[in-house]
C-alpha cells in the first residue's frame, strides 16, 4: 500500500482531483462501449421480430 489512510488515498497529495477525474472518464467511456452495443442488439432484435410478424400476417 502506498497510502496510510483512506483520506490520504482520496487526496493523493493534492492530485486527487486529476487522478479521480481521469479514472471517472475512463469508467464512463468503458460503460458506453458496453451498453451501446447491448442496446443496439435489443433494438435490432425487436425490429426484426416485428418485421417477421408482419410478413407472416400478410402471407
Amino acid at each position: 500500500m502506498s497510502f496510510d489512510s483512506f483520506s490520504e488515498f482520496l487526496a493523493m497529495d493534492g492530485h486527487g482531483q486529476y487522478v479521480w477525474l481521469s479514472y471517472a472518464i475512463a469508467l464512463v467511456l468503458f460503460v458506453v462501449n458496453l451498453v451501446s452495443p447491448l442496446l443496439r442488439k435489443k433494438q435490432l432484435i425487436a425490429e426484426l421480430k416485428r418485421r417477421l410478424r408482419r410478413e407472416k400476417s400478410t402471407s
Binding site: M1, S2, F3, F9, M12, D13, G14, H15, G16, Y18, V19
Partner: peptide, 12 residues
C-alpha cells in the same frame, strides 16, 4: 493503491 508514486510527478 499499490504502485509507488513518481518522485517528480507524485500521484498524478
Amino acid at each position: 493503491a499499490f504502485a509507488p508514486q513518481d518522485y517528480q510527478q507524485g500521484n498524478s
